[in-house]
């Protein structure tokens, strides 16, 4: 434990940097994927194309992407922006399909009835479709979040501060404890992100749990009302 105890500051700083790279990536993946997923859901003709293109993004190998991206977008090779953009592409690859599925899962009747009572297009999207797609969106986002936190470690290879640096440094200097610390800290961070997402889901979608439980009282005593 000697390396860990004498390097707590380094671990904390790396974890913080790691989180700072992960959080915007997860948010961007979500914000960009939802409209694409909605389009795929809404227009059957675009569905195949959008899902295929999004899926192919995942097949791009990460290290070459990190090398090419700065050249394409004109950032410096060590810019954290490269990591965020590259990993957002992977996030989109996962999240677009989840988003399309999430909107597919919203009951057609409910959307129709929202239209029938006079929700205009955007109102209906933000107040009906999006919240009702929420549970499936959240499930997809949790996968994106875990995957992102894990993928951010690759940036260590580029010398960009993150928990990945603990691996590369540990390998170079042969400090097993440092490598293990990197792995454990990454897993803990991923779990932390996941817990935050689940909590956010509970706060934003209190109805989801109420609906899942289907209050037994309402089923029996008052079923005849």
């Amino acid at each position: 434990m000697s390396w860990v105890s004498s390097n707590l500051g380094v671990i904390a700083a790396s974890a913080l940097a790691h989180a700072a790279l992960s959080a915007p990536t997860v948010v961007l993946s979500f914000v960009l994927s939802v409209p694409i997923g909605w389009l795929a859901h809404r227009y059957r003709l675009t569905r195949g194309t959008l899902l295929a293109v999004a899926g192919v993004l995942y097949a791009i190998p990460s290290i070459p992407l990190f090398v090419i991206l700065p050249i394409v977008i004109g950032t410096s090779a060590r810019s954290p922006l490269n990591v965020v953009i590259a990993l957002t592409l992977y996030g989109i690859a996962l999240m677009v399909r989840s988003s399309a599925d999430a909107f597919d899962a919203v009951e057609r009747d409910v959307v129709d009835s929202a239209t029938a009572v006079g929700f205009a297009g955007m109102q209906r999207f933000f107040r009906v479709e999006l919240p009702l797609a929420g549970p499936v969106l959240l499930a997809g986002l949790r996968v994106v979040s875990v995957s992102t936190v894990s993928l951010v470690t690759v940036s260590g290879v580029l010398g960009i501060p993150s928990l990945g640096l603990l691996f590369t440094d540990g390998f170079q200097r042969g400090i097993t404890e440092e490598i293990l610390a990197g792995i454990v800290a990454t897993v803990v961070l991923a779990l932390l992100f996941d817990v935050l997402l689940v909590l956010a889901g509970r706060v934003l979608m209190p109805w989801a749990r109420a609906t899942a439980r289907r209050a037994p009282r309402a089923r029996t005593r008052e079923a005849r009302a």
Partner: peptide, 19 residues
Amino acid sequence: VRLRRRIGYVMQNSGLLPH
């Protein structure tokens, strides 16, 4: 939209907003 907001609509399975 204006038309629908002045006409009541009730459907099977109530079409209520579950959230």
